[in-house]
């Protein structure tokens, strides 16, 4: 899903890093958003709706709509469409509304 050649743009990427999503190892580039890394890896379902458990992906990709909230390193409700990826992050699908410890 990565664009390798583009007629107008060149992409500056961070170094390649590993992180996990629901326990599975995923590779992405440091500093890109978690959502971009997951999408590039083919992971589209990011959460389930609270009442009817319908699958949800991102919608706006700029931190407005809250369709992409996930648990990151134990913190719930992270907008992964604007959260930069770091090595070793533990990303999980969040069930329910999430609570801080």
């Amino acid at each position: 899903m990565r664009i390798h050649e583009h007629p107008v743009l060149t992409y500056e990427k961070g170094r390649e890093v590993e992180f996990t999503c629901n326990g599975e190892i995923v590779v992405g580039y440091e500093g890109e958003t978690i959502a971009a890394a997951l999408h590039a890896a083919g992971i589209k379902v990011l959460k389930h709706s609270i009442q009817n458990h319908r699958p949800r992906g991102f919608y706006c990709a700029i931190g407005n709509c809250s369709s992409c909230l996930m648990e990151v390193d134990g913190v719930p409700n992270v907008r992964i469409c604007v959260e930069p990826l770091k090595e070793g992050m533990i990303v999980k699908t969040q069930e329910g509304k999430g609570a801080l410890e």
């Binding site: 899903m1 971009a36 990709a61 700029i62």
Partner: peptide, 18 residues
Amino acid sequence: PGIYGAGAVQTLMNIHGV
């Protein structure tokens, strides 16, 4: 999932190269 704002897709492609 798979239904996105057009601006979101633009962000994904033009900023992240995905």
